[in-house]
Structures are given as structure tokens and as C-alpha cells.
């Protein structure tokens, strides 16, 4: 991490998400509900955007204190920023670092774009299940195939 990147905040215990393509940091904040006081009461996060990156051109960084990511959260990060790296910080040190990776199966992460799919019927309460392929995603239930441009995250974002 360069000195420039360090100025956006030090965290003691939490996570750092690096190599987020420029302009997508806030989307991750929203998807992980980091700005939702009902979810992360007292949580502190800082973010920076527009840093030079050999990996993604211009990148953003997100640092969150007091938070660990669940599998669904990591899946969300991967969908928005597949080049991202995630570091778990403990006592100010990197405990574990890994690449965000779109999993083969996305359970309850994104909506099927087919409005008549059973997973989009709120009265049925069927969790979405989407397979990710090389170019396309496919709904397990209705088998609709769709590209990245059709992705809608649960909650409509």
C-alpha cells in the first residue's frame, strides 16, 4: 500500500477491500450496508477512489473497522469488483488476504431478471439461486440466462 493510500484511515480490526474499479466503491458500501446504522451500529469505514493501479487502471480502496465479511458479502464484492482483493486485519496486521472470486453458485445474492420467476414472487419466499458461467449467469429455477448488465442485487440495488 502506498503512502497515498494510507491516508484514508488506519484500522485495528476489520477488513480492507483493495483494487475496486474506480467509481464502484460506494456501490460496495451500499451493498454491504456499511452506511446502514441498523446493520453496523458504531461501525467506521473510510474510502478512497482514483488511486493509480496497475491491475485495474484507477482503483478505489475501502477500509472498514469492526467488520468481518460473510460468504454472501464476499460474493457481492466479487460481482461488483472481480479484481478486488480482501484483507482481514487483526491487531493492525494482515491476518489473511485473498482475491474476490465470483463463486459458481450465488445463493440469495442477486435477483433473477425474469419477473415471472418463482424467486421474484414475494409471497413464495423462494431464495434466488444463480449459476455463474464464463459469460453468462443462469437462474437455477427458471433457467433464464443473462449477462452482467442484467444483474440486480437483492434489495434492488
Amino acid at each position: 500500500m502506498t503512502d497515498d493510500e494510507k491516508i484514508i484511515g488506519y484500522i485495528e480490526n476489520g477488513i480492507v477491500i483493495d483494487h475496486i474499479p474506480q467509481g464502484r466503491v460506494w456501490q460496495i458500501v451500499e451493498l454491504l450496508h456499511l452506511n446502514d446504522p441498523m446493520r453496523y451500529e458504531g461501525g467506521i469505514f473510510s474510502l478512497g477512489d482514483g488511486y493509480e493501479s496497475r491491475k485495474v487502471g484507477k482503483k478505489g480502496i475501502l477500509k472498514v473497522e469492526g467488520v468481518s465479511l460473510r460468504k454472501n458479502d464476499i460474493d457481492l464484492v466479487a460481482l461488483v469488483a472481480k479484481e478486488a482483493t480482501i484483507s482481514e486485519i487483526e491487531n493492525g496486521r494482515i491476518k489473511q488476504k485473498y482475491d474476490a472470486e465470483i463463486p459458481e453458485v450465488l445463493d440469495g445474492v442477486v435477483n433473477c431478471p425474469n419477473l415471472n420467476c418463482i424467486t421474484n414472487d414475494e409471497t413464495q419466499r423462494v431464495m434466488s439461486k444463480i449459476y455463474s458461467g464464463d459469460d453468462l449467469f443462469m437462474c437455477h429455477y427458471c433457467r433464464s440466462e443473462f449477462g452482467e448488465d442484467k444483474i440486480k442485487f437483492l434489495g434492488g440495488k
Binding site: 433473477c112 425474469n114 415471472n116 420467476c117 418463482i118 424467486t119 414472487d121 413464495q124 423462494v126 437462474c139 437455477h140 429455477y141 427458471c142 433457467r143 433464464s144
Partner: peptide, 10 residues
Amino acid sequence: RHSKDGSARF
């Protein structure tokens, strides 16, 4: 038989 796509798979 059901009106929703994917209901049979579910």
C-alpha cells in the same frame, strides 16, 4: 402446473 417460471424445479 403453476403460473410461475421455475416453480416445478423448486
